[in-house]
Design a binder for these strands. Structure first.
Lengths: 193, 193
DNA sequence: TCGTTAAGGTACGGTCCGTACCGTACCGTA
DNA sequence: TACGGTACGGTACGGACCGTACCTTAACGA
């Protein structure tokens, strides 16, 4: 990838840059995302990057979109407790794990640019809430959860607690006992109330 | 403060540096915390800083301790709902507000140094959980909350939800309706279950 | 009084962001 | 096939900042 035979242009080059940036994000996090390294990895130079994104933060957000593109498939075990645990474990152990560190870095890196921040927030919210709403919907249908549990802020409480664990402790993986505690002490009592 | 008459030494100088760093943190956040600016503001130079703290992150954490030193006084209105709302509003509007942005910046800035991270986590946890445990304790005594609500992870759910709002949206102030929603949709149902 | 300690001053290497400039390959069009 | 515009590659640079080195100078203690 370092020295392509033919000179790439337009979309092809843009996607090569994004892929390189996403890889760098996954490896070194946002603080380690260097324009020169991305350019080198993509087999191009900084010019090609700055013609497409105004600064490092914008590139980071765009690359994060590539990194966290795969939405979680909501599990369906027939029990709310198992569904919730499965979702948490997927977020915890799965490939989404490095995304937490990246997200943490980006949240500070974007500074006070509202556009980028909005993109990030949508990315983090949209990709996160949907599967939770799905499992809660089924739980309500089974009579396992009260109808009010379909409120997004209620349905995603477990996700927020786990994310808080990521953000404040700075770990890339949380102990499984914490996940169980979140579900048994908070999530199930809240939804069943 | 820029050019003191007599040359300060030891503790006096150290505290001047910490105060300057805390001020810079409050004004420009962690990304804007520059060693040269801190030195200039404290009326000294970078040498005096690097003799006391090994790097910028360590100085940032130490200064944050100065910034967020004042713990919240738990309110006592006689009703759990009002107590919780008062706490949230104090965190939201009060002087603790810039601390959220600073904390967000520090959480990335400390990188992978476990010592600093532990200090930060203690600072954020200790200062935050105590008042919540206090108001929940009284609510349980009044029969407003179930005994299991005294679990720290349960008692601080509202705080975590608000912090999540700070961290992901990047705002320094959250709309009051969000606070009410957190309390009415999540916190009260959870504690009363 | 004098030596030790810690302060101030300054300069430097290194890294990285963002910009500028210029030569050059690709592409559509005639 | 010739041509001209557009976009890419290479490189160099200014500026900001971190962290370090070295020297001078003031404060303190014996």
């Amino acid at each position: 990838m370092a020295t392509p035979k033919t000179r790439r242009r337009g979309t092809e080059l843009a996607e090569a840059i994004l892929r390189a940036a996403a890889d760098e994000l996954a490896e070194a996090g946002y603080p380690g995302l260097t324009m020169e390294r991305v350019a080198q990895r993509a087999g191009t130079n900084k010019n090609a990057i700055y013609r497409r994104w105004p600064n490092r933060a914008a590139l980071g957000v765009a690359a994060y979109r590539h990194l966290a593109a795969d939405a979680l498939e909501p599990p369906d075990t027939g029990h709310l407790r198992e569904d919730a645990l499965a979702l948490l474990r997927a977020i915890n152990c799965g490939q989404t794990s490095p995304a937490a560190r990246v997200l943490r870095g980006l949240l500070t890196g974007v500074g006070d640019e509202p556009e980028l921040r909005e993109q990030l927030h949508q990315q983090a919210a949209e990709g996160g809430t949907k599967p939770w709403l799905a499992i809660v919907e089924r739980a309500v249908a089974r009579g396992e959860a009260r109808p009010g549990a379909r409120h997004p802020r209620v349905a995603t409480v477990a996700l927020v607690l786990l994310r808080n664990e990521f953000l404040t402790r700075g770990l890339t993986t949380v102990d499984d006992a914490v996940l169980v505690e979140i579900v048994d002490e908070v999530y199930l009592p809240l939804l069943g109330a």
